[in-house]
């Protein structure tokens, strides 16, 4: 996911509608400054869950940044509501959760609330931009079941569970079959790896 900080590749955040839910003037200002630096213009700021729910019910956003704790309010509860009970206009919106320290008792809740990423503070522009670009590029499918609603968190496919043959038509067997042709010789492998000059 590492971002090339020297990259001249362009992105345009100007028309993206962004909701920032954070408490503390400085924490909010830090986010606004970073996003403004990225070229964002359309940012709405709220510091209470009740206000966030109201605005999320009316306005469609392209990106939401939310603090894990919001004073006496709870960012985790807000994201859980967003994924399960919010009107459909923002149900699948990319969400980045920002946390300075997650208490042990809340780690599991934070993991399961349905954010795309939990970003640890102190925030750096590189990390925030990296996450925004990744979330946009990957377009994760959304999973919804009794215990979880949010972006698919599976990043690696290792085939069907051990001991089962899988349930999908395209599931590959975990067992590796016998070779169907002779192995390549060392010369053939070398020929594949050695760079060759070619005529222009």
């Amino acid at each position: 996911m590492a971002l090339d900080v020297e990259s001249r590749a362009k992105f345009n955040l100007k028309n993206a509608s962004i909701l920032i839910i954070e408490t503390g003037n400085m924490a909010m200002d830090i986010l606004v400054q970073v996003l403004s630096g990225f070229g964002a213009k359309d940012m709405q700021k709220v510091d209470k869950v009740v206000n966030a729910k109201a605005i999320l019910s009316k306005v469609v956003f392209d990106l939401v940044l939310v603090g894990e704790t919001l004073g006496s309010d709870d960012g985790i509860e807000l994201v859980t509501w967003l994924r399960r009970d919010a009107p459909s206009n923002n149900k699948y919106v990319p969400v980045l959760m920002l946390s300075s320290h997650t208490a042990q008792s809340r780690v599991r809740l934070a993991r399961d609330c349905g954010t795309h990423f939990i970003v640890a503070k102190p925030l750096t522009p590189v990390v925030i931009l990296e996450r925004i670009l990744w979330v946009a590029r990957e377009e994760r499918p959304f999973v919804s079941c009794s215990s979880y609603a949010g972006p698919d968190r599976r990043f690696k496919f290792d085939g069907p569970p051990e001991g089962s043959s899988g349930r999908r038509a395209d599931d590959l067997s975990a067992k590796i079959g016998d070779a169907v042709m002779p192995n390549m010789s060392q010369d053939q492998i070398d020929a594949l790896l050695n760079a060759k000059k070619v005529n222009p």
Binding site: V5, E6, R8, K10, L129
Partner: peptide, 8 residues
């Protein structure tokens, strides 16, 4: 928009 380097 902006290049990544300029935005950072």
């Amino acid at each position: 928009g902006k290049s990544v380097s300029a935005a950072l």
